[in-house]
């Protein structure tokens, strides 16, 4: 039980992990993350890796859509741009993976700025449709620019090498994912402690008065597009390093929608929410799969329903959360925490 909130300086008040308790739990989290791969098997490590990649992408979308309020239906396309950039740089130029990673982010950020540029003059639905157009156009390019992307057959890349070590197992890739996730989460958190993050939220809440408060709307929307697609590009590069092959099928519109579902289920504009949402939405297909496996003995074709059932569940989660729990899992978590904070002295 802990009560009260006493701090001696404004610096302490501004710190993110300000109490010994929260610092303790952060330490526990890091320790658990470090110990995890030594106990987990390949399947769990695989899950951890794809969850980590989803977290990085969701953190990106959370900045653009959750915090700045610009709906993007093209997030998967930006992940795709990062993935293709990374694969092409590896295959054609033999660049080391640790260099491909940021370059993939930069390439995606460049296209993010391009797609965000019309936001100077339009907003809301019109911008949302522009991102839909970007999704459709990039998907078309992934399929049809065969000399660059390999068309529908896609591209294969060799296992990445880092400091002379071949990263060719779930275990070794886990460390890369973990480090990138920690960096992405830290950077996101920092963003919202400074003027840039405040400007984003102000634009979402009331764009007109934000401008009257001295915020250059166009510049900050472009920043949001750039940071968001940079993280998407990084996620794409991780994807390539992990899977070692890409095809256009990996980045369709419903993948963009899946990322939107993550940040909604987690809690729009909330960093922890994006993380919870990514974890939750990555687990769902696995959960469904085990449920269907259980029924397979009674209904032999149960597995055929996996994909459509996933689609239904994703849709239902979006609707149910928006109608009943618009602040998402993050808010639910807070309620649970607050309940236990004063427990058992509730009243």
């Amino acid at each position: 039980m802990r009560i009260g909130d006493y701090k001696e300086s404004y610096a302490a008040d501004e710190a993110v992990f300000s109490t010994p308790t929260s610092r303790f739990w952060l330490g526990v989290l890091f320790a658990a993350m470090a110990a995890f791969p030594f106990f987990a098997g390949d399947y769990l490590l695989y899950m951890a890796n794809i969850t980590g990649i989803a977290i990085v992408a969701a953190l990106g979308l959370n900045i653009l859509t959750g915090a700045t309020g610009q709906i993007s239906l093209g997030h998967a396309a930006f992940i795709g741009i990062g993935a293709y950039t990374s694969a092409i740089l590896t295959n054609r130029f033999g660049l080391p993976y640790l260099l491909c990673l940021p370059l993939a982010g930069l390439a995606a950020a460049f296209f993010g700025i391009l797609v965000g540029a019309p936001s100077m003059r339009m907003k809301g639905l019109y911008l949302c449709i522009t991102t839909l157009a970007a999704q459709v156009i990039f998907e078309f390019l992934f399929v049809h620019w065969e000399t660059l992307t390999g068309g529908i057959r896609g591209l294969n890349v060799p296992a990445p090498e880092v400091f002379g070590l071949k990263i060719d197992s779930e275990f070794s890739f886990y460390w890369i994912t973990a480090v990138v996730v920690i960096i992405a989460a830290t950077v996101s958190r920092n963003l919202f402690r400074t003027r840039m993050g405040r400007a984003f939220i102000a634009i979402r809440d009331r764009d007109i008065s934000a401008e009257l408060m001295g915020i250059n709307l166009f510049r900050y929307k472009l920043y949001a597009f750039a940071i968001s697609s940079f993280l998407a590009g990084i996620a794409g590069s991780l994807w390539v390093g992990h899977l070692r092959s890409i095809t256009p099928e990996h980045f369709p519109l419903h993948e963009s929608i899946r990322y939107l579902a993550m940040i909604i289920v987690g809690g729009l504009g909330n960093i922890l929410g994006a993380i919870y949402g990514a974890i939750f939405m990555t687990m769902i297909p696995e959960l469904l799969q085990s449920v269907l496996k259980y029924f397979e003995s009674m209904f032999p074709q149960a597995m055929a329903f996996l994909f459509p059932l996933q689609t239904v569940v994703f849709g239902l989660l979006i609707v149910v959360f928006l109608v009943f729990e618009p602040h998402g899992l993050a808010e639910i978590w807070c309620r649970i925490k607050n309940f236990f904070r004063l427990w058992p002295f509730k009243h």
Partner: peptide
């Protein structure tokens, strides 16, 4: 968008 996903599934 969620609704469209539900109907399609």
């Amino acid at each position: 968008i969620g609704l469209s996903s539900i109907l399609m599934g």
